[in-house]
Design a binder for these strands. Structure first.
Lengths: 248, 248
DNA sequence: TACCCAGATTGATTTATATCACGCTTGTAG
DNA sequence: CTACAAGCGTGATATAAATCAATCTGGGTA
């Protein structure tokens, strides 16, 4: 139903930003049409990952940032005692790995939530290119800055808001991000499991379930497994007053 | 009458990174000795702020990032309904405003927690300079990436850890950051009020008080107002197993 | 087809921390 | 010196969400 964006995977290793339907969301966004070749020169076409596959692992040598082409990705950090914290969900056009730019190793693990394809930007080449292209450098600063901000938003959510408010906020965030991709903002598939939502929002799975059914009973949403329809986004926004714009 | 107050402000607007004692912590860290002039050329000496003064205000036009020279700063975001979320504390050598690089306006308000002086890096000039100096660009990426990471750490703390664990983590973070400044890591003054700590960590002030006294009774710390002494950092680390390094 | 099992839901109970209410200290202004 | 407010500490109570404990569901597969 929502096949709005179909990514054509070229067999060659080199990806074509020129023809990519995500070029208005992804890094090419910041690059002038006639300079796009330079970005294409450094980007590598990644393979296709199945649900559950790791795109990279925490503590593995850091090589490149990834742009999601299709599918969905979750990132999480694992502590020595083995507990996991989901740190983000990434949709097509979004850049994964910005938190790892400050070390030799990946700061988190990235996992495909569904069948996913990516483009890789090797970090040395990317840095060289951003040095040479001020607009691209500016864009990188913007992306990272936004990620810092959405971290602050999340902290706010976690420390000040109830379970219902947190979940409303997440649903609205996903909604607006799907919309940016020209997909329905009111009816979509949640790419992640309830337990990922719970982990990300600092809740127990049971609480997530309960809130979903409560929202459903109030006629605000309709869910069936991972399918979800936002029936009354105004009420959702009412549950969660703050939270307007927010897309990584 | 002519014994006018002589403030330690150099009359010139230009600051000297060459002679600054923080040059091994701050931006100069990434710049070669013989290139330092170029950084000095763009940095502006800011004024001195008293406790409570705003260094900049949320939604004001974004002009520059600030490096703390002396004192301490807290940043916070205010939502439409007026509730505040403290998003960070900044000590000398640390850079404030990285979350604002992605817009025309400051994403948060920065307030002096005590008498504070700063250096200002006008953003256009900083971006120009980082384009010209790959090492400085690299350093900016590192700083921002670290800030993203510490956001993740905070999210983890807020969603998985108890009041005691959160406070232990904050104390250890401050301790290690003071130590980097060649100050005691075991005996220092908390620059912020209990209410700031509470807000930052998603707790009620009362809870912060209680945990402080509990720690004191267990002989882990000694507090008297804002003075604090960490008597048993091992126990503190035991309270909060994860959380080793973390300095913005 | 029937079975299995991970994920999801629902209900009952517990618990950490917020909230409410109050007293104590300290620093500053009159 | 006194007064006052802001910050801090402490006790009693309320509550949202965690935890514990079943049960249900549906997609994959033997």
């Amino acid at each position: 139903m929502d096949r709005a964006i179909s990514v054509k995977l070229s067999p060659s290793l080199k990806a074509s930003c020129h023809t990519c339907s995500l070029s208005n969301l992804c890094l090419p966004l910041a690059v002038d049409e006639n300079q796009l070749d330079r970005l294409e020169d450094i980007v590598e076409q990644g393979r296709i990952y199945d649900r559950g596959d790791h795109l990279f692992d925490q503590d593995a040598p850091f090589r490149s940032c990834l742009a999601v082409r299709s599918g969905a990705v979750k990132t999480s950090i694992i502590t020595e005692n083995g507990s996991e914290q989901v740190t983000g969900f990434f949709l097509p056009g979004e850049l994964v790995g910005l938190d790892s730019l400050s070390g030799e190793r990946y700061a988190c693990t990235a996992k495909a939530l569904e069948r996913t394809s990516v483009c890789r930007f090797p970090i040395e080449k990317l840095e060289e290119l951003t040095s040479a292209m001020p607009e691209l450098q500016h864009h990188m600063y913007q992306l990272m800055s936004k990620e810092i901000r959405s971290g602050h938003q999340l902290a706010m959510l976690l420390s000040k808001n109830s379970a219902e408010e947190r979940i409303a906020a997440l649903l609205l965030s996903l909604s607006s991000r799907f919309q940016r991709r020209r997909m329905s903002g009111t009816k979509f598939n949640l790419p992640m499991a309830r337990s990922d939502i719970a982990n990300f929002l600092g809740l127990a799975v049971e609480t997530v379930s309960r809130v979903f059914t409560r929202f459903q009973n109030q006629g605000i949403i309709r869910t069936q497994g991972r399918e979800i329809e936002l029936l009354d986004t105004e009420s959702l926004r009412g549950v969660m007053p703050e939270f307007n714009r927010q897309a990584p």
